[in-house]
Amino acid sequence: MIEVIGLHKAYGPRLALRDVSFNVAKGEIAAFLGPNGAGKTTTMRILTGFLPADAGEVRVAGFDVFDDPHAVRQRVGYLPETPPLYPELSVGVYLDFCAELRGMARKDRSRRVGETMERVGLVGWERRLLGSLSKGYRQRVGLAQAILHDPPVLILDEPTSGLDPAQVAGIRDLVLSLAGDHTVILSTHILSEVEALCPRAVVIANGQIVADGAIEELRGRAAGGPWTYVEVQGIEGPQLGRLPGVKLVEPLGEVNGWAAWRVRAEGDPREGLAASAASGAFRVRALERRLPSLEEAFISIVGREGTAA
């Protein structure tokens, strides 16, 4: 549904994107992750046809963004980083204007605007001026504007930035309800949100795609990969490290008199550890396979300096 091949974009001497390529399949929700200034917004602006690219190919819903921008615009709903609102218009008038911009007939307009307002939780707000809305409501109106014409492709630039946890949950439910018949690409740097929403993440840093895959896969690959959490008694670190298959042990402190360790091994060491414990070498009460957290994965992928911003 979204195909990006070899995208390059420079702002003057500064290269913003270099050789960016990725695909998003129909009905998929993909997260676009990366530190601030990595090129997320630039990529999204190119996807919507707002910015031209210097080189590369972008196809959205089967149409080339550069050759046939009109067809793409009809099929894309876009929420820019700051919701595009006219402070002097009311919610109802604004959404009606947006519907008209998308070429909806008068009789469909009021129905669609009503439905959309219900969907994003704006019922009873149609007469409020946009300039008087709080951040959360501004974001809702921005989202309403993006889904108004029921576009097959949704591009959301930081849809939850600056919202409180309840509002974030609301937007998350909304995006989840759109999955299936809509292809969604959303950028964010809130990692817990990615795990809750998107099975798939594309990670960008310094204008380049540095990782692309299922969240589990990224976590498994990054930061040294999967590891085993153990809580043991009656064995010291060096002995634990000499057990068959074990490559590395790191202390994680003590939990109620039990020593906790992070064990890295060739393959899955749990069976071997359990067998050693059963033979009476030591006592064990926890033996758990774990993946690095998305935070750890993210930092190991984009590098520490990337997250400082």
Binding site: R45, F50, P80, P84, L85, Y86, P87, L101, R102
Partner: peptide, 11 residues
Amino acid sequence: QGTLEMLLTSP
């Protein structure tokens, strides 16, 4: 206001 972005990405 950022509304130009919306107008220019509208059909």
